[in-house]
Nucleic acid binder design. Structure first.
Length: 273
DNA sequence: ATCAGCACCTGTTGGC
DNA sequence: TGCCAACAGGTGCTGA
C-alpha cells in the first residue's frame, strides 16, 4: 500500500502524538510481525521516543540513545494511536492488530495489518545503512551526475530500477509509473539508455509527483488511511496509474497497461518515448 | 548482476 | 444472483 508520500504523511502525523513518550511495553499479536534480524523488540521497553520520521518506506520511531524501531507497512499496514486496551480485548479495539507498543501515558501505538506482511525491526545506528536502502529521492544531493553514475550500464527497465529500494528508497508501483509519465519516458526503457535530458526530467518529475502527493496526503486507491483514519486525495490526480483504457489527460490517447517485474505498469504510448 | 517465478496473506472485484 | 479467478500500494527467496 504505502509508498513515500503515504509513509511521510503517517510519520508526520505520528510524530507530535508520541514524541517524548516513554515505551512501557511491547505486545506482539502475531509472531512474525517482529523481524528478528534487529534483535528482540523487548529491549526498547523503558526507552524514550525522540521523534518519528520517514526513512524510505519505513516509519522510523527514533529513540533516545541512537536506536529506533523501523516499521514497514508493506501492502496493508496501518498505524494509529489508541487508548491502551485491556490485554484480553486488544484485538477487538483495532481490527487485525499485529503489534501494540504501549506508551507511558495510557496510550499505545497500534500496528495493524490485514495481510500480515508488515514488519517491525529494531535498528541500531543509521537506519538507512542498517536497512540496506539507498538515498532518498527528495534529497537534493541526488542530482543528475549522481543519477547518471547509478544508471550507467544498467540494462534493466527504468521502472524496475526505480522499484529497487537499494538504489533510491521510497518510490513504489504508483509513483514509478507517475514519475515516468511526467518525465515522458517509457517504463520499459533500459535504465542506462536515458539521455542527460531524460535523467534531468526524471529527477524533476519524481520530486514533483512525490511532493504533490505529500501535499495531498497520499493516494487512497483502496485502503490506505493516515494516522487519524483519513483518506488521502492524490488518487484523484493520478495521470496514468490505474487508468488503463481511460484517455491520457495530456493528449487523449488511451492509457496502456503492461507488466514489468510482475507489477502492473501504466503509461501513455504517445507522451512517453 | 539480473530476472522470472513464486511465496507470504486476506479481501475485493470483475467476468461469466 | 453466485462463484471464483485475478488482482492489490511490497519485499524476499530460489534457481536459472
Amino acid at each position: 500500500m504505502p509508498e513515500l508520500p503515504e509513509v511521510e504523511t503517517i510519520a508526520r502525523g505520528l510524530h507530535p502524538r508520541v514524541r517524548r513518550r516513554r515505551i512501557s511495553g511491547v505486545e506482539p499479536h502475531f509472531e512474525r510481525v517482529v523481524d528478528l534480524r534487529g534483535g528482540a523488540l523487548q529491549s526498547v521497553v523503558g526507552d524514550r521516543i525522540a521523534r518519528v520520521r520517514r526513512v524510505g518506506k519505513f516509519v522510523f520511531v527514533e529513540l533516545d540513545g541512537g536506536r529506533g524501531i523501523a516499521i514497514h507497512l508493506r501492502m496493508t499496514g496501518r498505524l494509529s494511536v489508541i487508548k491502551t486496551p485491556a490485554t484480553n480485548d486488544a484485538s477487538k479495539t483495532v481490527p487485525y492488530l499485529r503489534l501494540a507498543i504501549h506508551l507511558d501515558d495510557g496510550r499505545s501505538l497500534a500496528f495493524s495489518d490485514v495481510r500480515k506482511f508488515g514488519r517491525a525491526r529494531l535498528v541500531d545506528g543509521d537506519p538507512a545503512t542498517a536497512l540496506g536502502i539507498g538515498a532518498d529521492p527528495l534529497d537534493e544531493k541526488v542530482d543528475e551526475p549522481r543519477l547518471r553514475s547509478m544508471l550507467h550500464g544498467k540494462r534493466t527497465p527504468i521502472k524496475v530500477w526505480l522499484l529497487d529500494q537499494r538504489h533510491l528508497a521510497g518510490i513504489g508501483n504508483i509513483y514509478a509509473s507517475e514519475a515516468l509519465f511526467h518525465a515522458g519516458i517509457r517504463p520499459s526503457r533500459r535504465a542506462g539508455s536515458l539521455t542527460r535530458k531524460e535523467r534531468e526530467r526524471l529527477l524533476a518529475a519524481m520530486r514533483f509527483v512525490l511532493r504533490k502527493a505529500i501535499q495531498h496526503r497520499g493516494s487512497s486507491i483502496d485502503d490506505y488511511l493516515d494516522v487519524e483514519g483519513k483518506r488521502g486525495r492524490f488518487q484523484n490526480l493520478l495521470a496514468v496509474y490505474g487508468r488503463v483504457g481511460k484517455v491520457c489527460r495530456r493528449c487523449r490517447t488511451p492509457v496502456r497497461r503492461t507488466v514489468l517485474a510482475q507489477r502492473g505498469t501504466f503509461y501513455c504510448p504517445t507522451c512517453q518515448k
